[in-house]
Design a protein around this nucleic acid. Structure first.
Lengths: 210, 210
DNA sequence: ATACGGTTTAACTAATTGGTTAAATATAAT
DNA sequence: ATTATATTTAACCAATTAGTTAAACCGTAT
């Protein structure tokens, strides 16, 4: 435990990530973070000064790691259907790989709206909306606004992870394997659900068997 | 303020509802609840003994008020399409009328899973799944499981309310009127989105103009 | 008038927590 | 060997908070 200073700061950051993502800024305690990192409170102070600065570091790390790629997918020069399938797949993957990411994002949006939006604005959301609207106009798609479409896509991807404890209880009977399979399959079913709704004929929709 | 004992208990419960829904059990303080109710801490103790019992009262009040009706809609003896439209409309209505309901439900599912599920089980969710599955089997609908369908419906209804602060910022430019109109319209657009995805031909789907 | 339930006041305790510090100790680089 | 850096220990303060209590006060119904 002693003097492995190369990764101690990183270990603290990881511990903070874990605790902040599960409990949120206010409920999380510096003591728990220190315990999980295997250091003491004084060292948190040594590296990050205080709780708020530590939380900010966690926040920026998460935002910069997970969000930009997703916007990139939706503005790529490809048919809309391909973009939608890629986005859904990538988003469900990233949320699967980080159990508490959905919870964290929602918590930050609600409790720290200003700061979250400042970061989010760097991704130029209006430009995204404009580009998607343009695609909807060009392609032969039933009437829907880009905002509604994006909101629907986000809803279908993120919400199931938010209520995962409930699904675990009712549907998966607390078997992690069932949960994993469910979310794996959803990459397909959610894409199909969206595409099927957008195009007049069931064009290209892949149906799959149980 | 004095001796209106008829509704003081109710006032405290309303104040507690408001604070607990926004901040969650742990971040909420009894002092703030007392302030909003226009009474002092000692009176909370007089009526509800302690914070936990007060929170429980709020929880049960909310669950019993808002949830049962929604399950009732989905198991009514009607064509599935009508049930879906009624469910979406009713759910968006109830979430619109109670700004912090979505946030509260999500918070409880995540932080108090056991207790939430105990209450939820009273609504016989497996029966709901069975009935919806049966409807999907009987009617001429593309392949989708009842679980996926219900998860999708819930996602499309609830998630936009959870990220409303974000939408307010990017889309509505903090104009409450725009937000209201958006969610009003979504009763239609979400229903259409789902129905359109379920049925092979665009049967009965109402298209609407800007 | 009195007795009772509702309400306030004011004070207190115990526990938790974030933040801070000083000193000691360990390690690696020079 | 010396120095700079990393880390621990241990103690402390100030603030917040849930919970509790005793006494007084108010209003109303009997």
């Amino acid at each position: 435990m002693i003097n492995n200073n190369i990764n101690t700061e990183q270990r603290i950051l990881e511990a903070a990530k874990q605790v902040f993502m599960q409990k949120g800024m206010k409920v999380a305690t510096t003591q728990e973070i220190a315990d999980i990192a295997g250091v003491n409170k004084a060292l948190l102070h040594y590296y990050f000064r205080n709780k708020e600065k530590l939380h900010l570091a966690v926040f920026q790390d998460i935002i910069k790691t997970y969000l930009p790629n997703l916007v990139g997918i939706m503005i790529a020069r490809q048919p809309l259907e391909q973009r939608i399938r890629a986005f859904v797949s990538a988003y469900i993957d990233v949320l699967s790989a980080n159990s508490y990411l959905a919870q964290f994002l929602v918590h930050e949006i609600q409790q720290n709206t200003e700061r979250f939006m400042q970061q989010f604005m760097h991704l130029a959301p209006e430009r995204l909306i404009r580009i998607v609207n343009h695609s909807l106009y060009k392609e032969n798609i039933r009437h829907i606004t880009a905002v509604d479409l994006m909101v629907n896509m986000l809803s279908l991807c993120v919400f199931p992870f938010i209520v995962k404890p409930m699904l675990n209880h009712i549907i998966f009977k607390d078997e992690e394997l069932m949960s994993e399979r469910f979310f794996l399959q959803r990459k397909q079913t959610v894409s199909d659900f969206i595409i099927n709704s957008l195009y007049y004929e069931n064009h290209k929709t892949i149906r799959h068997t149980c």
